[in-house]
Design a protein around this nucleic acid. Structure first.
Lengths: 300, 300
DNA sequence: GCATACCATAGTCTTATCCTATGGAACTAC
DNA sequence: GTAGTTCCATAGGATAAGACTATGGTATGC
């Protein structure tokens, strides 16, 4: 007997329907059916009468239901108690991709120090695939990454959509143009991040949408390095708006395309099953607030 | 979080030692270590300080321990309540190999009807491998099979050791001999059960121990058919003593070898994890008593 | 200082849990 | 009465979890 079987059992008892119960638990109906059958074999009693389209608790099932509820209630209490324990560690680790870590997460951590002095937030900057793995393996409480994310074990909460801006050196010919189209970029040399970065993929995707392949001349591991090469006039690039810093003013120009509006979506990922500490919840609230403010700032 | 993790956690808390806890749970130490680590990641707290050779509960671990105990206590209550429920079905299904079903289990079921009128015992006669699978899959509450059994998922309880007897037709030349050795059988034709039967393997094993291969002329699916062929003088066979029936008196002769004493051991197998109903326990008590009486009968 | 005891990691294998496809039975609508 | 739909169970296969062994690193005891 395992807890997931008890959860499936409870869902069937509450819905009277294996199919509905399987949907509630995000598994397929044959899976749930098999687990109920295994549970019945293990306890040695039928727990449901299968009456046509209805699953009705047997007497044994009714007896067992009260116990199953109690067990699951105790399980919830066990995790809740750890969460609410006042003296326990208040330390979390968040992850962020390189185009988010210095611009979005670092300021948030700074702010969190003020608003939640008892909460210690550690940070890990890495690429999306590594962050995803780290969240799944419990090394991170949450991570801010770019969409899309496809892993059913993760909770994926969209945060915000931000524009991708064209960035060129101050003396680049595109500076000053009143109209810049995607096609204008077809012959330019691109400076991108390495293949581990989703930004590289986004640039390729954007150019692909406009029927040309970007000419990639430089691959960088850091945004700062990328900005340096662009400032040198070695090529052009595309960066998310959050990467735009006041100190860029002297060496870089951020431009918008006039015929298209590339964007990227940021999301926060967490482990579906991992219990969320109060510290993680608090940080996430700050993150959500910040994202809302950012989105509102773009509209006005 | 699953129940097996809670059980491992509880064992570590009680022993202060991952290695000892893994032994208690019949898994390897790295397995248990990994499960504890997974549990810690899921609840978001360290549950043990690893202090040199000791595993000591952290404050979070101490808090969690009480909850874990309560959860496992509720699980035990859930299964115990189903067992003790007076109005629940009192029906079990037992399995037996063909050389046991008609001689040992059938009489027991008869007797059970008298001593436990509210208990209905169904029976399935099959070969050991099929019975083993049926027990594992929950189709049978228990089964009486021959040793050896090697499956760590099964509880194997030795029942009794019984002699294997040489059986021949009434006019066979071996009848009346004062000494019969294993070697005397080397040139005889054997009548055995099919390969699905463990008896066939036992005959080959016995002959192998005496440095000859049995000449198998007939393979039968039923003991009655085997007895018929032996009675006809088609060959000889070896049967367990329980297979000896009063009605055999007119057509068969059971003999003992004088230079060796082949035996077989019977065991009752159950699923380690499956909860044992009271009905199954009652039947098993009768079975144990019967086996003791059989063993005592052979000694006197 | 060395041997021992312990936990954690890595890599691999086995088993449990998941999937899709589909069958059989009951129910519902026409 | 029949056809279509809904539901659960089975079969076979894929994937992930849990198990294994081998081994490394650290602490302890002699």
């Amino acid at each position: 007997m395992e807890l997931h079987q008890l959860r499936y059992f409870l869902s069937v008892a509450e819905t009277g329907n294996f199919t509905r119960a399987s949907e509630r638990n995000h598994i397929s109906q044959p899976s749930l059916s098999q687990q109920i059958i295994n549970l019945e074999k293990e306890v040695g009693h039928k727990l449901f009468h299968r009456l046509g389209r209805k699953a009705v608790l047997t007497e044994a099932g009714t007896t067992f239901l009260e116990r199953a509820r109690r067990i699951l209630f105790e399980v919830e209490n066990a995790t809740k108690e750890l969460k609410d324990h006042p003296a326990l560690d208040r330390r979390i680790t968040v992850g962020a991709v390189p185009t988010v870590a210095p611009y979005l997460v670092a300021p948030l951590i700074e702010r969190c120090r003020v608003t939640h002095p008892n909460l210690q937030v550690n940070m890990r900057e890495d690429f999306r695939s590594d962050l995803t793995r780290a969240v799944l393996e419990g090394e991170l409480d949450l991570a801010v990454v770019t969409m899309p994310i496809r892993d059913h074990r993760l909770s994926v909460e969209p945060l915000m959509i931000e524009p991708l801006l064209l960035v060129v050196g101050k003396s680049h010919p595109l500076v000053g143009r009143s109209e810049i189209t995607a096609h204008d970029l077809a012959e330019e040399t691109f400076v991108t991040m390495g293949d581990s970065s989703t930004l590289a993929a986004q640039i390729r995707s954007f150019c692909g949408d406009h029927n040309f392949a970007p000419k990639i001349g430089y691959r960088c591991a850091q945004v700062a390095t990328l900005k340096l090469f662009v400032a040198m006039g070695a090529g052009i690039s595309i960066l998310p708006q959050v990467a735009r810093m006041p100190s860029d003013r002297d060496s870089l120009t951020y431009l918008r395309l006039t015929d298209s509006f590339p964007t990227r979506e940021l999301a926060v990922i967490r482990h579906l099953q991992r219990y969320q500490s109060r510290g993680a919840e608090q940080f996430l609230t700050l993150l959500r607030d910040h994202a809302r403010i950012e989105s509102a700032g773009k509209v006005s």
